[in-house]
Nucleic acid binder design. Structure first.
Length: 446
RNA sequence: GGGGGCGUGGUGGAGAUGGUUACCACGCCGGCCUGUCAAGCCGGAGGUCGCGGGUUCAAAUCCCGUCGCUCCCGCCA
């Protein structure tokens, strides 16, 4: 692990200038001249006492710096301190520069009975233990790096879409009726009335297309009250949602998604996200490879998966998702594949029908479904006509139908699971690791 | 919801044909040490072996139940 990388320094000195004129980022000390008075502040990452001299590794958001004390160190692990001292060049110091402490102020003492070692490698600790002690495990540099990368994903996603004239929206997560799918909704007591947590911003983002914005995206929580308990499910996850008006078909949507992913993948190769990739030994596909992502029909996908697994598949199960990505890697040099034309039974009622199939798609990436999308029905009469096939009545849909009753363009969209994308970029075994405070079947804390 | 595996000090593991003070590493406490960087050396504290019941002279070990974790499937992003 590159503890002494200066990558993370960024402009910490600059931004702190207004509030704390003298504080220097840990990672920037290496760039200073020797003999300068310097003030650093952060968490005590490690203490090494050698008798007449002690070394303390101080950690802040930029990185690390070594502090030298004469005699014993007056600090303990994870204590938050502010230290003033003199920079000193030393070949034996990490980064060639260290700080000889003159004054040490304890800003936030830390108890000594930490249940997990913050300075250790999180890979040596079980996921459940890391999540039980999330407040501390989030301090582990490797884990923190993961969430810095996730932040970059979100930023790049929004940045790309804004450049394409999309508007970011925030819609309510409290909904009056659960129409999509019908199951998997959490109930909430809303002043005595029964409402639900939204399982997706689907209806609202369609409404926003029809509002005249035409192109919208939303970054928000989605809730699924499914009792699944697997390494790829969360009951609350962050959905990167996109909806676009005036499309001709789903190729427009898949093109858009590839553009987004190309922008994200290119963007995470620099800055703080690159540090995370390095620490996890991970890499992302380049733009050329991504543009070769095959688009195959559902039936074709089943045939390929059946052939490669040697089993007769009636469905794209998790194993099929894995072998399809292997196939794409072998045949097209990219571990991603769009599967299109899902059967009507497998898609919600609002999906544009195409014979027995639908104008819809999934994106599988590194063996996991990270996106579902499709063209939506924008024609009022057509939508109403579809409802009986799903055992629904117009009254069930409340205000949803008025989106189409008063004029809505052809449109469609998709959603990318943020934690799943993070998981697959870094090669994490469990999607829960990619959530700051995951909610699963049994966990609602911390 | 279905099936498999596993629960041992704070963390990660060993111990499993039953046998008496349950082992190791890291962490923690005390001591030594002036260049560490996973510091080193010496000493110490910390576990009713998930929980309950059973078999037995004797259970971490075998049996039953239960709870938890984990993997796979169903379902999904």
């Amino acid at each position: 692990m590159p503890e002494w990388s200066t990558e993370g320094a960024r402009q910490m000195g600059e931004t702190d200038a207004q509030t704390s004129p003298v504080r220097t980022a840990a990672a920037r000390v290496a760039d200073m001249d020797a003999g300068a008075v310097v003030q650093v502040a952060g968490w005590v990452h490690r203490v090494r006492e050698l008798g007449q001299v002690s070394f303390v590794v101080l950690r802040d958001r930029s990185g690390f710096v070594q502090i030298v004390y004469e005699g014993a160190a007056p600090v303990t692990s994870e204590t938050v301190v502010r230290i003033q001292g003199l920079t000193a060049a030393n070949e034996k110091a990490p980064g060639g520069m260290e700080v000889r402490a003159q004054e040490t102020e304890v800003l936030g003492p830390a108890a000594l009975d930490a249940p997990i070692p913050v300075a250790a490698d999180p890979d040596g600790i079980g996921i459940e233990t890391l999540l039980d002690h999330r407040i501390l495990s989030l301090r582990m540099p490797k884990i923190r790096a993961m969430f810095q990368l996730q932040s970059e994903i979100v930023r790049l996603f929004a940045e790309y879409l804004r450049a394409q004239d999309f508007t970011e929206v925030k819609t309510s997560k409290l909904i009056g009726s659960g129409t999509e799918g019908g199951t998997g909704l959490f109930e909430v007591d809303y002043f005595g009335e029964r409402v639900f947590l939204a399982q997706s911003p689907q209806f609202y983002k369609q409404a926003m297309v029809a509002s005249g914005l035409e192109r919208v995206f939303e970054i928000g929580a989605a809730y699924r009250a499914e009792k699944h308990d697997t390494p790829r499910h969360l009951n609350e996850y962050v959905s990167l949602d996109v909806e676009m008006g005036f499309i001709d078909g789903i190729d427009d949507l898949m093109d858009l998604e590839l553009g987004i992913l190309q922008h994200i993948f290119a963007g995470v190769k620099d800055g703080v996200a690159a540090t995370a990739l390095e620490q996890y030994g991970a890499s992302v596909p380049d733009a050329d490879a991504l543009s070769r992502t095959p688009r195959i029909d559902y039936e074709e996908a089943k045939a390929i998966a059946s052939e490669r697994t040697g089993k007769r598949l009636f469905d794209l199960n998790p194993e099929a998702e894995r072998v399809l990505c292997d196939w794409a890697e072998a045949e097209h040099g990219i571990e991603a594949v769009f599967v299109t034309g899902f059967p009507r039974k497998k898609r919600p009622f609002y999906t544009w029908p195409d014979g027995r199939q639908t104008a819809s798609f999934d994106l599988l990436f590194r063996g996991l479904e990270i996106t579902t999308g499709g063209k939506r029905i924008h024609d009022y009469d057509m939508l109403v006509g579809e409802l009986p096939k799903f055992g629904m009545k117009p009254e069930d849909l409340g205000d949803y139908l008025s989106i189409f009753r008063y004029g809505c363009p052809p449109h469609g969209g998709f959603a990318i699971g943020l934690e799943r994308l993070t998981q697959k970029i870094l090669g994490l075994e469990n999607v829960k690791a990619a959530s700051l405070f995951p909610r699963d079947r049994k966990r609602v804390r911390p």
